[in-house]
Design a protein around this nucleic acid. Sequence first.
DNA 1: ATGCATTGGGAATGCGCTTTCCCACTTCAT
DNA 2: ATGAAGTGGGAAAGCGCATTCCCAATGCAT
Lengths: 367, 367
Amino acid sequence: MLLKVPETEAFEEELSVTASTLSEVAKLAGVSPATASRVLNGSARTPAPEIAERVRQAADTLGYIANAQAQGLAKARSGLIGLIVHDIADPYFSAIAQGVQAAARQERRMVLLATTNGTPAEEKEAVAAFAARRAESIVIAGSRSTRSEDARANTDLAAELDRYCRNGGRVGVVGQAILGVAETDSYRTIAVPNEQLARDLARDLARTHKGPFVIVAGPEGLTTSDERVMGFQRGLSDAGQPAADIVHVAFNRNGGFDAGIELAWRIKASDRSAPDQRLCIFGTNDVMAIGVAAALRDQGLRVPHDASLAGFDDIEWLRDFRPALSTVSLPLEEIGRLATMATLSNDNGGAAAVVGSVTLRRSTGSP
Amino acid sequence: MLLKVPETEAFEEELSVTASTLSEVAKLAGVSPATASRVLNGSARTPAPEIAERVRQAADTLGYIANAQAQGLAKARSGLIGLIVHDIADPYFSAIAQGVQAAARQERRMVLLATTNGTPAEEKEAVAAFAARRAESIVIAGSRSTRSEDARANTDLAAELDRYCRNGGRVGVVGQAILGVAETDSYRTIAVPNEQLARDLARDLARTHKGPFVIVAGPEGLTTSDERVMGFQRGLSDAGQPAADIVHVAFNRNGGFDAGIELAWRIKASDRSAPDQRLCIFGTNDVMAIGVAAALRDQGLRVPHDASLAGFDDIEWLRDFRPALSTVSLPLEEIGRLATMATLSNDNGGAAAVVGSVTLRRSTGSP
DNA sequence: ATGCATTGGGAATGCGCTTTCCCACTTCAT
DNA sequence: ATGAAGTGGGAAAGCGCATTCCCAATGCAT
């Protein structure tokens, strides 16, 4: 008994591996937890300045950091925003993510990230995970899929999203609305006028290009790609041109490369000096177009000399690419920001439309 | 009183905007919350199959999703991993993020994202926010800064990280160790041998290039850039070449562009046909090198004809760039994965070193 | 039959915080 | 001097869950 080590309170505190709590701060400051809470974590009621100071001091010496989980539980607000993308390493998505992050920061929220490879099944999982974390809103980016093998998973995704919304969540959808989802105010869609812009692009290209057009598209059923294809065809039609051939490949750089190899044969077989035989290739997104360009180059063909080439998105990191890629500029970061803000505001009114624009560059013969 | 609307329980439930809870599920299944918890959310004790089924049914009809915040509070584990990057739109960071995300997914964790523009002050804030959310570990990527104006913020960052670690957190550091931080097992550094690789690069370049070298570096004090500069100079020295001139600009594409404009003058003033006067420019990261290339092109100069150019990182999206950029390949995604796994495992042993390699391409005259 | 270990469900407690409610006290008008 | 109307601090009740502890029921050996 005499040898019992006197464990001082300080000693115990030093050993503690868990963060200090509000109660500890309160005790040290000689006030109740309620008061401590009021001074440290914001409240309508402001304790006396002298007390507040004492509490702040105590918090400081203890290195107190409020437990956001506990706060979330108590306040029923998590301060979390979920972001769902196909692939964060894809510049299209990382640009959007940047916008989401910026908006979240401004609104004092944190962002939870989930990547899904574009499969509805994984998207559904991500929604469930965000719902579990009680994220206040979810921003979901990336093309929808209408392919039959995804039908089931799409239904599940819609159901999961609907459930999330019923529980009070908000969903910001980038691009096109999600099929099968309830018609509620909880969904805030930031529509990207893919079809209109692709149509504009086709019309602009048709003004100078007199040969045939070919579209390098993503898999059939990928909505974004489908919309761009449809718009482009419509634009050609507007200009009195015949519809373009379509080659479906993966909606990424390698898909574009594959298509490019195939097209290279066709180009080589044609009379490239005849303006009415020169090909104009439209890749339904920039990275696909870059893939096409790489393949053509690989096959000894030159853009725009042997064929014209255009993309879609105007990815920032691809702007230094030569020949500079004609494309449709999209304010990606802005889109991310808009989607986020839309989920956070109560009025659904300002469904601000995204404005893009055709940007013609060297790859289609512009100087 | 006669007109009082009889609110049935079902009606109330329908109106409820909050997710259903464990207790509700338990009540519906006719068991205690404890039992429901055991069957739904994993436990050492497994209730009888017949009861379990009833509970699962109840959960299903109620669309129950466990509240991860409450679970986190009760279990003292959040299942969260914090990721801190300078700029998620930068392909360097988004590649790392991809790796972190993959590892997190595999380990059944969610990732919280924070971007900081590379300032220690914002990094500190991010750490505090993650600590508040009780993230189990934090992965921090992006160059450190030793600039004097950042000294104070760096100290604060180190203090914040130390506090986080004292409270049981783990930190995975990508690149170089963080200055001023305690020497504890809690920090798991994934060292990137910037200096060694830059040295290798310089030696390889010096083998064929006989003219002067110039380094386009980030701001002085940016550790990653400094390390690469130092290694490069050492490599030149190894090869018996004089040290390279250094031009300090922003550590991004535009910085490279600015430097490129400046260097264009120097190149134009030299006798480009004399091999011993041809310049070899080393951009301390790929996007800077791309900026340099853009500027040179802008000034009517050609790479590698008028000057050689090399970068560092081997960013995937830049590989289709022409002339193909000589660079040092870094397994970015793998680095992200490693950093994440390192924070999650208990043995600090396998501080697996990152292995990079020099990749010579057309921009330095390789075929 | 008796005693003991084992099983499995439920009551109760606590995780760390917010917030309502209560109450002692001050201030002001009458 | 008195009551009404503020002030401001603390007690206590949750938020939704995990988990410890308790206890009745069962299985088994003796």
